[in-house]
Design a protein around this nucleic acid. Structure first.
Lengths: 140, 140
DNA sequence: AAAGATTGATGCATCAATCTTC
DNA sequence: GAAGATTGATGCATCAATCTTT
């Protein structure tokens, strides 16, 4: 079983990680109408493909399973953020004008939200400590 | 805009917090069939009410909105984990035999999962640092 | 057969609207 | 009216099954 301290740490971890995630997502959604996965998709297609990217490559790079991405792109397509074009055995995801405009608005909002909800509350040494902690948790 | 370092930290944060959450949840689900919110509900009803707790109080204590809890209890009730009893203007949530058995199986699995995925990868000083970091992030 | 993608089913999260009991 | 709770709609996540192109 966990000690009281350990259990308290776990509850703090859950509360803090969840609230940072939710607050950043809420800021972006409020200003641009983009959800977290919307923003992730648009960012990657822009960065890796300059506005056009193969679906399979996109899925790998953002860690989505194929089916999850397919469902999500269906919703994004219906909102006019992206379009899909069949290419050989695969499909290219293409950012539309509307998607590009939304992404442009979202970038500074995202930066400000990350600063406000994660970076600014921490001192420089805490930021360093956090980096090593996250590294430890990542490569297990 | 964010610097490369800041952006990298954000991506690490997202990846690590999401993977810890998912791994702990997966361990519990694999061993007991309980989802994360299932376990949260059962734990609280047990701890705060000894097996019976008013819905409103439960919602407040686990940070669920009323409607979210209502939907979730409907699913849990259909799986036989809890039952609901009208009391005055409110409703009591009561853990069933099956719910109690599942909770009993889940507790040690939960403890082991938290240890394995969050506590053990960290040194003692990192755990301390994490505690103060989470405190800073919490009370904003 | 293997890779790429879609679909349907189910569970979970959030919002707005509604209903009941006090 | 206020608090407690439910319902319906929509979006998101995951799994299994399926279909196509290579």
């Amino acid at each position: 079983m966990l000690s009281d301290d350990e259990l308290a740490l776990w509850h703090m971890w859950k509360r803090a990680t969840e609230s940072v995630r939710a607050e950043v997502a809420a800021d972006i959604a409020a200003e641009t109408g983009l959800s977290d996965p919307d923003f992730g998709v648009l960012s990657r297609v822009e960065e890796l493909g300059g506005g056009r990217l193969r679906q399979a490559r996109l899925a790998d790079s953002i860690g989505f399973h194929r089916s999850r991405l397919s469902h999500h792109l269906t919703r994004m397509e219906s909102r006019g953020l992206i379009s899909r074009e069949a290419v050989g055995n695969g499909v290219d995801v293409v950012i539309t004008k509307a998607g590009s405009a939304a992404l442009k608005r979202a970038r500074p909002v995202h930066a400000a939200a990350v600063r406000r909800h994660l970076l600014e509350p921490l001192s420089a040494s805490q930021t360093d400590a956090l980096r090593t902690i996250l590294e430890r948790l990542a490569d297990r």
